[in-house]
Write a protein that binds this DNA or RNA. Structure first.
Length: 474
RNA sequence: GGCCCUAUCGUCUAGUGGUUAGGACGCAUGGUUCUCAACCAUGUAACACGGGUUCGAUUCCCGUUAGGGCUGCCA
């Protein structure tokens, strides 16, 4: 059996995109399942779009989220000679030709075709230049590109493991450029050469490449390469069903990470976009994903990226990690510290207090300020809807008394809750006790329970806040 | 415009030539006798349309419609 090898091949033009992550993940899962090799290739053949530092960021993000390639990445810009040589060979074999058309001419041509409602297509202007003409232009130092010569009147059939057989007539294909005038290859050429040389067994990539698959097939044939398996993945979509892009929300994986979305939650959610295990299970560790992953269960239709459901997955993971206190717990704390550097010593308590209501860790920033500084609140807020000022005052006094005599050692949420419970008597209801205490402590209409807050604040600050409330009620 | 792809609840999806078409998110209601979150329970909501094939189609075929992708010296 041939070894399973896949590659993730991003271009270093920005950040790792959530769609790219899904592609990387499927590549990764397929190789890990088959004890194969997951490789990374940097497709930096566009000098215009190259972004300084993007490559490093990409690699770092992949590693942070747990998709580490098995080998050092291959960078296409370091292989220009190879592409050039092979392009020349294709010219010699009459599978490709020099084209001296200027970008201006092509632009003009395209515009004319469009205005005449014709199909924009290269007019094969240079397809049949004589050897003499070519020599002359080369000698005159004219800029040129190399175009692939699409064979005439052929039906090209491409096979994809997800989408099945795709047939195209060669007349519908352009004589596409394989080597640009700056001597860099285009995607199509470099991609085919590298997949061959890296011995990639499965080309797993986004559906947006499906239309150019026939071109690639033609290149494989012209180059006499064996074809790998092709696996095109359904697109990830914006809520309006267009191809997922920023503009309509976050798509940069590192932004999600920075906000405190957990790697396992992101991977778990993204794995279920365009793939399913065939049953109702939804929670998968990376190991379980590897075990259960299969190419057959990949869907064909695009999937909308739903932040709502990602939030749910992430919240669920946060809650589970806090509840279990296992290995992941320390990681969670460390991640939270990075997000709240000013309160890093309080992080564990913060998670205890807010853990059940976090979609992502950075939400702590909005949830917690009142703990450090009691906000000003209207006196009226202290009074429970079914209560009055007198009872409220009574209740708080009772609470204050009980708490003052409470030992520091017994200052836990369980005890404190019981103590508050003791105050519920003599015509005072739970609403007369818990509500005003909670508002006194938080200054908020909605918050965690009073016992939880007091546990966090400690005795001194808690009593101070309750006293303050009593002062307001005078 | 041309080429290619796709079509089950709002979203992610399961599923079948005969099912009360299942689960999850979201949303709604109720419970948990302070609020919120969590938790529990219940509810809400789908086979795009039209032809075939068939005793019977959501399921198979064709078409229509709709949506998307590609159509660059971008990837």
């Amino acid at each position: 059996m041939n070894k399973i090898r896949t590659r993730f091949a991003p271009s270093p033009t920005g950040y790792l995109h959530i769609g790219g992550l899904r592609t990387a993940l499927f590549n990764y899962l397929w190789t890990q399942k088959n004890r194969g090799q997951f490789l990374l290739r940097i497709e930096d053949t566009d000098q215009e779009r190259y972004v300084q530092g993007a490559e490093e960021k990409l690699i770092a993000t992949l590693e942070n989220i747990g998709l580490k390639p098995n080998q050092k990445p291959l960078t296409q810009s370091s292989r220009l000679k190879i592409y050039q040589k092979i392009a020349e060979e294709l010219v010699k074999k009459d599978s490709a030709y020099y084209c001296f058309c200027s970008p201006e001419r092509l632009d003009k041509l395209r515009k004319e075709q469009q205005s005449q409602k014709k199909i924009p297509k290269y007019d094969n202007h240079c397809r049949n230049l004589s050897t003499g003409e070519i020599k002359e232009k080369l000698a005159a130092n004219q800029k040129y590109v190399i175009r692939f010569k699409i064979p005439e009147k052929q039906t090209i059939e491409a096979k994809d493991l997800v989408y099945g057989s795709i047939k195209v007539q060669s007349e519908d294909l352009d004589d596409f450029i394989i080597l640009k005038s700056d001597q860099f290859p285009t995607y199509h050429l470099a991609n085919v050469i590298d997949d061959h040389e890296m011995q990639i067994s499965h080309v797993i990539r986004g559906e947006e490449w499906l239309p150019s698959l026939p071109k690639h097939i033609l290149l494989y044939q012209a180059l006499n390469y064996n074809q790998p398996n092709f696996v095109h993945l359904p697109l990830l979509l914006n809520p309006d069903k267009s191809k997922l892009s920023k503009r309509q929300g976050d798509v940069a994986v590192e932004d999600f990470l920075a906000k405190g979305y957990l790697p396992q939650a992101i991977l778990n959610y993204v794995a279920l976009l365009g793939w399913n295990p065939g049953d109702d299970r939804e929670f998968f560790s990376i190991k379980e994903l590897i075990k259960n992953f299969s190419l057959e269960k990949i869907n064909k239709a695009g999937a909308i990226f739903d932040l709502n459901k990602l939030n749910w997955f992430n919240a669920e993971y946060i809650r589970q990690i806090i509840a279990k206190r296992g290995e992941d717990y320390q990681n969670l704390i460390n991640q939270t510290k990075k997000i709240l550097p000013d309160h890093s010593d309080q992080v564990e308590n913060l998670l205890k207090l807010f853990g059940s209501r976090l979609n992502y860790l950075a939400e702590l920033k909005e949830l917690s300020p009142w703990l450090w500084q009691l906000p000003d609140y209207p006196t009226q807020l202290l009074i429970f809807k079914k209560s009055d000022q007198e009872k409220t005052k009574q209740g708080l006094k009772e609470v204050l008394e009980l708490l003052t005599t409470t030992d520091q050692k017994k200052w836990t949420r369980e005890n404190l809750d019981q103590i508050l419970q003791q105050a519920v008597k003599n015509g005072l209801t739970a609403g007369d006790i818990f509500w005003p205490t909670r508002v006194a402590l938080s200054g908020l209409e909605k918050s965690p329970s009073p016992a939880e807050i007091m546990e966090f604040l400690g005795k001194e600050e808690s009593l101070e806040r309750i006293n303050q409330a009593l002062g307001k009620l005078k």
